[in-house]
Computed example of a mutant assay.
Amino acid sequence: MFRRSSSAKQPSDAAPVEPDQPPATPEGPAGKGRPTPSRRDAEAARKQRLGALPADPKAARRREREAQRAGYDRSRQALKSGDERYYPARDQGKARAFVRDYVDGRFRLLELLMPLVVLSWLTLVTGRSGIIVVGELAMEVVVVVGLVLGVWLGFRVKRAVAAEFGQDEVRGSGFYAFSRALMPRFMRQPKPKVTMGGRPKV
C-alpha cells in the first residue's frame, strides 16, 4: 500500500542522455572549412599542376611537334659539338664510342663505295650502250665488294666489342660500324675524335 510505482523510480546511476549528434561527414578534421574534392576533381587538379597538355587537340599536337623539333635540334647540335649528353639514342654509350673510334682510326675502302656508285650511275645516263654496260658491271662489282667488306668489318667489330665490354653490348655494333664506314670521313656524325692511326685529336 505504501509502495511506489516503478515508473516513478529515478535511479541515480542512470547515464545522462546526450543530445543528438550530427552524422559524421567526410569533410575531415574540424577547421578544414571546405569539402573534400571528388576523385575526378582531384585528378584534374593534379594534371593541371603537372602541366598537362591543353584540351585543344590542335594545340596539343602543335606543342608536341615543337618539343620534338627542339629535341632534334639539340641532338643535331650535340653531334657537331661532341656533347655526348644529347646524342641520339643510337650513338650513346661507351660501346658506340668505341666503335666510332675503331672505324675512324684508319682509312676504310668502304669510304670509296658511295663515290663509285655515284660514278657508275652517271654512266647510265650517257645513253651510250658500251659505257652503260661498263657502268652496270662496275656498279655490281662495287656493291658486292662493299657487302663483303661490310660483313668482314662487322665481324671484327663485334669481336672487339665483346672483348672490351662483354657480349651484352655486341648487338647492333656491326651494322653501326658498317653504316659509319660507308660515309666519307668529313660527313660522319658524330664527328671523328681520333686521327688516322687511332690517336685522339688534340
Rank of each mutant, 00 (worst) to 15 (best):
S5V: 05
V118E: 08
A44V: 12
G198L: 05
Y102R: 08
Q21I: 13
R65I: 09
G150E: 02
G172N: 08
L137P: 01
A59E: 15
L124G: 07
V103C: 11
R4H: 07
V117I: 11
T123G: 15
D101A: 15
K9I: 14
R46M: 13
V143T: 10
V125L: 14
A24Q: 10
F155C: 10
G172F: 02
R40S: 15
R188K: 02
R39D: 12
L53G: 09
L137H: 06
R188P: 01
S5G: 05
A67Q: 13
R62H: 13
P11R: 15
R156P: 00
Y87G: 02
Q21Y: 09
V145D: 07
P54Y: 03
V117K: 12
V202D: 07
R106W: 06
P115C: 08
V170L: 02
S75A: 15
G51I: 04
D41E: 14
S179E: 05
A15S: 11
A160N: 02
R188V: 03
K201D: 05
Q77H: 11
R185P: 01
V141I: 15
P57I: 07
E18H: 11
V202E: 06
V125D: 04
A138Q: 13
R90G: 05
Y72E: 14
E164L: 04
R4T: 08
G197P: 01
L53Y: 10
M1G: 09
R128C: 10
V143M: 11
R156E: 12
A163W: 05
V17I: 14
E111R: 02
K191D: 00
T36F: 12
R156Y: 08
D168P: 01
G93E: 03
S173M: 15
P19V: 11
K32N: 08
A52S: 12
S7W: 10
M139K: 10
K191I: 06
M183H: 02
G166C: 03
E169F: 12
V134M: 13
Y102C: 04
R40T: 12
E66M: 10
P37N: 02
E169G: 01
